Computed example of a mutant assay.
Amino acid sequence: MRFLAFPIAVILIVLAGWAHGDLSGRWGASQELQQAVDRLQGIDQTIGSWQAYDFELDPQAVQIGEIAGYVVRRYANAAGQTYTVMLVCGRPGPIAAHTPEWCYGGAGFHAESANLTEQLELGANQTANFWRNLFVKEQAAVPERLEICWAWNAGDGWQAPENPRLAYAPQRHLYKLYVVRDASADEDGSEQASQRMEFMKELIPVVDAALFDQEKS
């Protein structure tokens, strides 16, 4: 057994190194991850009465955030309501770690209070769970306030775990969704919240159809 211990240890070390390299993307993006990124382009720009246009993220932010692919759109309707939707995909580690505190903190925003959880009823016994908070930039010439909702999805629904890095560590890829609303001119918070939830109820089924229906078929 003494003679077998060394080669077995070597094999275990090599396998552990390969597994870590595969999960961390050291050997390049996997085919599965690339397919997940490609599905982002299947999300419609028109959702009900909402029409969107795309815009680009700062390439440096994409690199720092280790984002493999993304879609960022501003949806607007005839009533003048607008929401910015950012959906990113990548390896679970960095995608789980980078929350709005990190993403928007670099732009001068800070959370106004503790994060709150919100459950969205989608019908047919389906729900989506999100974190929500107001992020404030007080140092601007005109103070800015953004209401941000965010959640992650690895194929089992939109969730808001306390520790996303731990929750999604075994996954091969991960999506993260932000829904952002300019709350600087809010007068009736309850009405704005109701309108935002109605938009998300229209948005999420369209997103899910593009990202996950192929996986289920």
Rank of each mutant, 00 (worst) to 15 (best):
Q119P: 02
G105H: 01
D54Y: 10
I67H: 00
A114G: 00
L122A: 06
H98Y: 07
P164S: 04
N129G: 05
A111Q: 11
I64L: 11
R165Q: 15
L146N: 15
G106D: 02
E144W: 01
Y75I: 04
T127Y: 10
A107V: 02
M86Q: 05
Y104W: 12
E101P: 03
A140I: 01
A97E: 15
A140Y: 09
W150A: 01
Y83E: 02
R74E: 12
P161W: 09
L120R: 09
L57M: 11
A154K: 01
A52P: 06
G80Y: 08
D58R: 02
W152R: 07
D54I: 07
G155F: 11
G108M: 00
L122Y: 06
E101M: 05
D54V: 11
I95V: 10
N125S: 11
A76E: 15
N125V: 08
A140D: 13
D156L: 06
E138Q: 13
I64Y: 07
D156A: 05
N133C: 02
V71F: 06
T82A: 10
G105S: 00
T127V: 12
V136W: 05
Q159C: 00
P161S: 01
I148L: 02
G155V: 08
P100N: 13
T82W: 01
W152F: 15
T127Q: 06
M86H: 03
A76Y: 04
A97M: 05
A52Q: 03
P94Q: 06
A61E: 08
R145G: 00
N153V: 10
W150Y: 15
W152V: 13
F135H: 04
L87P: 13
R145C: 05
Q159P: 04
Y104S: 01
A97D: 08
P161L: 01
G65W: 05
V142P: 03
R91C: 01
R165T: 14
H98V: 09
R132P: 14
F135R: 00
